[in-house]
Design a protein around this nucleic acid. Structure first.
Lengths: 197, 197
DNA sequence: GTCTATACCAAGATAGAC
DNA sequence: GTCTATCTTGGTATAGAC
């Protein structure tokens, strides 16, 4: 059995994906993680908020690495984005449309009420945008446009999670993959036509 | 002073935008709306959930009409989308980055725990997608591609609200406007080159 | 339609034995 | 590190006078 601290984080992650931050109680976490509330406070003296920060940071890192892995293995830059949305669609269907990403859910809930959580989420979003920007720059897109597409990609991912979860359908995720792929392809073409280097 | 029922809905809308569904209590609503909890249950015998359905439906209708209004006044189809994001950016800055849309927040929180709320939100999203689809079809885009762009637009709007609220910045909204405008422009060009009618 | 009072329960957090 | 017990506060919802 995994370490207690890890079990707490994993259980909290899944409960946040299902019920959000305010909809998840410490007693639920305690039960799902097979750890007492005393244990939770032992590892996270800052309570629920500190635990949530840890969940955001660990999950955020995993997702950045997932994107980088998909990007590395994609046959060409544009298809990395199509593949990412296809993967997300599979996760949603297999998980009965539980939210794939606790970060967006929590961030939207508490952005006006918890600065520690807002800032933790903002840093993760920045790291994702940077990963995409770097990927596109390596594909030949100029820095400015790459950063812009990075923002649009992250927003589209988060927005698609809201939409597909609410509609209980993954149809829209395919549309998103195609649209993002098209934007990336066009960005690469544009740069090729008017090279700055 | 507005009717009590209206005051309750308006106050709940704003509290949901700030604190989400589970983060908003009936006592807060009671205070903000200047109505007793007894009054809330008088108008919404179904309690908090029924009140939330009413908030989603009224707000959703207002936003659809807002889009249609912007689309009607835009000089050309693509700039409707740029204008929409520009308007959203202004709202965010003026409101200290309160969420412009309670529907996405609530939907993401409770999609797995309240079927009435999930379904209410899904219907509103559908109505927005249909409004965009119709707008693009009138601009000459084929139905299939118009529907696809409608989904991408709604997702990008919702995702950008998450992102800009978390980052407390509207920079990414401009990127979104440009990207959506580009996708729409290209869709119109494509259709013009290979007309189906 | 609106009011006060309250029932009932679960929340986050803490204390202190082991 | 983990346990049980408990404190305090606040939640949704209801009852019944006016």
């Amino acid at each position: 059995m995994a370490e207690t601290r890890d079990r707490i984080i994993v259980a909290t992650n899944e409960l946040f994906r299902r019920h959000g931050y305010n909809g998840t109680s410490l007693s639920q976490i305690s039960e799902a993680a097979n750890a007492t509330i005393g244990s939770i406070y032992h590892f996270f003296p800052g309570g629920k908020e500190a635990l949530a920060v840890a969940v955001i940071e660990t999950t955020g890192t995993i997702y950045r690495e997932l994107f980088e892995s998909i990007a590395r293995e994609a046959p060409d830059p544009a298809s990395a984005y199509v593949d990412f949305f296809a993967g997300a669609a599979a996760v949603l269907e297999e998980s009965d449309y539980i939210d794939p990403c606790p970060i967006g859910t929590v961030a939207r809930e508490v952005a006006n009420t918890s600065e520690p959580l807002r800032i933790a989420a903002a840093k993760i979003f920045d790291s994702w945008i940077n990963a995409v920007t770097q990927h596109l720059v390596e594909a030949g897109v100029c820095t400015e446009q790459a950063a812009e597409l990075g923002q649009v990609f992250v927003a589209t991912v988060e927005g698609m999670f809201v939409l597909s979860r609410t509609q209980r359908s993954t149809a829209s995720l395919e549309s998103a993959g195609r649209s993002l792929g098209q934007l990336v392809t066009q960005a690469i073409d544009d740069t090729t036509r008017t090279p700055t280097s």
